[in-house]
Amino acid sequence: MVKELVVLRNKIDLLDTKLLKILAKRLALVKKIGIVKNIYGLPVYIPEREKYLIESKKKEAQKIGISPYLIEDILNRIIYESYLNEKEKGFKKLNPNFKKILIIGGKGKMGNLFRKMLIMSGYIVNILDKRDWENNDNINNLFLNVEMIIISVPISSFNDVISKLPILSKNCILIDVTSIKNMPMKKMLEKHKGPVLGLHPMFSPENNILARQLILYCNGRNPESYHWFLKQMQIWGVKLQCINSIEHDNYMAFIQSLRYFTTLVYGFFLLKQNIKLKKLLMFSTPIYYIDLILLGKFFSQDSKLYTEIIMSSHNNIKNIKKYLHNINYIFSLIKKGNKAEIINIFNKVKILFKNHILYSKIECDKILRYINNN
């Protein structure tokens, strides 16, 4: 081997060792920050601080001839690891006098995630699952002194769970975490006369941390009673967005139900064509490669859950019919060789996206890097 190459590589190895030691020192400081945040009840995720940190270091990098996007990638990964370290210290309990929380469906993935986060925040949490309900003659005892009930069950089981609930204390907070909101909110408000809150976590329950993750929430009744709980979730790092239940379901019909339907159909089509995915990936452009990654992630999820989401939306059947009508219309244009009308449709849709979601090449590259890192 060339002597000069060995010398240079040895120098790189020394620098890499120094980098590791610097990272270890940084993570040690992060743990101390986690303790301070715990004491004062500060959120794990502070978007303004994160944005300032990344943008300022990108500018510094550019001044000394380092790619700002390299630094952005490195910092994003370091920040993610920092959130994991902060999480180990637990979270401040915002409502110290709160007694007991019951999670119905707490053995499921999402219910178990809420259970872990609440326990890490110092709350007493019990769980009630389907088998417990069927095999427990003194089920009502589980509801004694319960001040919050979180229902985390499949949509198909929701009505059955609501019907089995005993009369709850007027101060008990009743919450659901289903992917549709209008029907569950109505059922909870009919059943319970106390505080009611609807949550829709817009992330997989397999996430290690909740920093940067989005939860949509719908106010039901007596929001002042559960305002502290919304703050508690923000301490976990969650981003919250308020929306009414009808608007929620209208948008979810496009964001989830219809999109999942089209993804299911496309995946099924590939299956029936006996496509070799390895070659498909080999010949793909980066954009289509992203499509295939997202397709693979979709089919790695819980099939029962996603089938329920597709089938539970009342708007989805109407939307699917309209979608199929549009497919047939464009197909008819292709059969007729009507290029002019297809170009016209293309340009109209282009205007829609240009006015609302215009990504520059830099932003597209950022999305590509994010997907590669996650």
Rank of each mutant, 00 (worst) to 15 (best):
K116M: 11
K170C: 01
I54Q: 03
E147Q: 13
M120V: 02
K37V: 04
N95S: 13
E48W: 06
F283P: 01
I243D: 08
Y370K: 14
K339C: 10
L118D: 02
K109F: 06
D16L: 15
I310T: 02
L240N: 10
N136D: 15
K21N: 11
W133T: 14
L142T: 00
L168W: 00
Y370W: 11
L294I: 04
N171S: 07
I46G: 02
S156K: 13
K18F: 08
K181P: 01
I367A: 12
L174P: 01
S245D: 08
L277H: 09
I124D: 14
Y306W: 09
S312Y: 06
E247Q: 12
K21I: 07
F158Q: 04
R221Q: 00
G108P: 04
L199A: 01
T17W: 07
L270Y: 11
D365H: 13
L294S: 04
S121T: 04
D129Y: 09
N244S: 08
P223G: 01
N326R: 14
K18M: 09
F114Y: 11
L118V: 03
S179K: 10
K31I: 08
I79D: 08
L29Y: 09
F261E: 12
I330D: 03
F269N: 14
N126F: 10
I287R: 09
I39D: 07
P201R: 03
E363S: 12
Y359M: 14
G122D: 12
G65W: 05
M282Y: 08
I12L: 07
K181W: 02
F98T: 01
L165R: 03
N207L: 08
F269Y: 15
R131E: 15
K58Q: 15
D13S: 02
N328H: 12
L19S: 10
C218E: 13
R131T: 12
N76C: 03
Y226G: 01
M233C: 10
S257F: 05
L214M: 11
Y83T: 07
I343D: 15
L27M: 11
G237I: 05
L305K: 09
I290K: 04
V349P: 02
N182A: 10
S360K: 11
K99P: 03
K350R: 15
K31C: 07
L281S: 02
K321W: 07
I209K: 06
T263C: 12
D249A: 06
N85D: 14
I209V: 14
D73F: 01
C172Y: 00
R77Y: 07
S67A: 11
E247H: 07
S204Y: 00
I309R: 06
N328I: 06
T285G: 13
K272T: 15
V177I: 12
D249L: 05
I151D: 00
G111K: 05
R77L: 13
G90K: 06
I180S: 04
Y40C: 09
L165A: 05
M183N: 13
K322S: 11
E48N: 08
V7W: 05
F299A: 01
H200D: 02
I357T: 12
G267P: 06
D13G: 00
K130G: 07
I39K: 13
D129K: 06
S152R: 04
S257K: 05
F158H: 04
